[in-house]
Design a protein around this nucleic acid. Structure first.
Lengths: 136, 136
DNA sequence: GATGATGTATAGCCTATGCTATATTTAAAT
DNA sequence: ATTTAAATATAGCATAGGCTATACATCATC
């Protein structure tokens, strides 16, 4: 492993982090729409455990990046791209939790840790997890 | 799972993130000291893949939080606490990589993903990983 | 249809991380 | 010993996420 490689790894981890919040919000908005028909900023804020203006700001970013749409004082909805991302994130989350459970992590802990881990699981690792789970 | 639980999970992931950079820098400084006898800011910056002032700022934070010491224009060293943290982080990294390899993740990818994943692996999950690896 | 409660947006602030440009110190070389 | 090169520090800026306080819309209720 050379220095450059290591720097690249950190850069990758930083990049993943910047995507993580987007993924969390998109998934949560997807959940709320599924449950309630729409996602209100107040509900998003409560579930994310942040203040309402923080959720508003996050929604602005989602809109700016093409994952969500909304009109002032109205609910938030996902674009096609946003809905697809939400589905990918949800599936990945399930797989990560299942993998953790499969190697002996208690359910409660698996859910907790998966929330942070999932954003750093690459496509290749995800595929490996799936193969491992099938092989069991 | 209630809303409060979910908000807590996100809060936990955010907290983990704030610790992640500290862990990365501390581990890297430990590596440099082991290899070169001291950790120079320029080396830290290069390996972390950031600009030199960014590394300087990070070192300031490490000092402020009691993990490192340094004098102006001189190398950076770890406190006892910093060295202990570095060792814990290094051990956890090894375990995470081993676990990924054990479930079929290719070596290269395992190293890449571990860099991000490791910061979100709790003590309990780490223990489960170790048990799983021993049982193989 | 006015009013009050609720929900959303905006303003302004803080901290953290990143950057570039530049000053300063140290160390090396002539 | 000076001068120059290299390393480090500092200044100043940007973005992102968090917060509180407050303004503004919407909606329900009377």
């Amino acid at each position: 492993m050379t220095d450059v490689d290591q720097a690249d790894r950190f850069a990758r981890a930083r990049e993943a982090q910047s995507v993580a919040l987007i993924e969390d919000y998109v998934e949560m908005i997807g959940d709320l729409i599924a449950e309630l028909g729409e996602a209100r900023v107040a509900d998003i804020a409560e579930r994310m455990g942040v203040a309402q203006p923080t959720a508003t700001k996050a929604v602005s970013r989602l809109k700016r990046e093409g994952f969500a749409t909304s009109r002032p004082y109205r609910g938030v909805f996902l674009t096609e791209e946003g809905a697809a991302l939400a589905e990918r994130v949800r599936a990945r989350h399930r797989t990560v939790v299942a993998l953790l459970r499969a190697v002996g992590v208690p359910e409660e802990v698996a859910e907790l840790d998966a929330e942070g881990i999932e954003h750093h699981v690459s496509e290749q690792t995800l595929k490996a997890f799936e193969r491992f789970l099938q092989g069991k």
